Amino acid sequence: MEIKPQAVVIPKETDHLEQGKYGPVFPRTPACYGFTIIANVKPGRAGAIREHGHTLAKALEQDPYLLAPLKLHYLRWVLFDDDTRFMYQGIFDTDFDKYTEDAVALFSKSGVSTTFENLEGFPEDWRTNPEAFVRFVREHHCPSFIEYGEYPYVTADEIKKALRIKNALSEMLDQMQ
């Protein structure tokens, strides 16, 4: 079975989309689910955002599976406009509602805070008030209007499984030589 690349246009109007617990459920695309947040950085906090990147990287060195409950493909953090604005992009396998609830639970449980605390308007009570967390994310979400997948609709778990099979096959072939 050949997997062909695909693209899906995402509608600008979301009134007709299924409504989840926290608003419209954007359709799964060939890139799976995801969102982009753009927000203003609190004055003087860009350094804290960069430092938080190091903190998260260290936490992942200690526990590579720390973010596993989020079913991520990738995350991207960008500071721009002379470090006054921040962009967060995430692609993952669950819908927005589940991702958000899982993120709040994960960060609360692990003791790792979110870099969003350095953004203007982010709720200070986010750990105990997931609705406020969601509201912030929804208010700062900039939906994409088209998404493309070279390997469409493939989950992170399927990719990892395929890589394990590839490595096992490679090892087997190496042993046969």
Rank of each mutant, 00 (worst) to 15 (best):
A57G: 08
K161Q: 13
G34D: 04
H141M: 08
N40K: 14
P69E: 07
F26A: 12
V9E: 12
A168H: 09
T100L: 08
G149E: 08
D83P: 12
G47Y: 01
F96S: 00
E101K: 10
D174A: 13
H141K: 00
E147K: 10
F122R: 02
N118F: 12
P24L: 12
K4Q: 12
V137D: 00
L56F: 06
M176T: 12
D82G: 04
G20A: 07
F80S: 05
A48T: 01
Y33K: 05
F145D: 12
I91L: 08
K21G: 07
F26I: 12
G47S: 15
K166W: 14
D15Q: 15
V8L: 15
R85N: 04
F26G: 04
F92K: 10
N167S: 11
K161I: 00
E51H: 14
L67N: 02
D81E: 14
Y33E: 02
Q62E: 15
F35K: 03
M87I: 02
H141Y: 03
A156L: 01
E117C: 14
T114L: 15
H52P: 05
I3H: 04
D174Y: 11
I165P: 00
E18H: 13
E101S: 11
T115R: 13
A46R: 02
V137F: 10
D157F: 07
L17S: 05
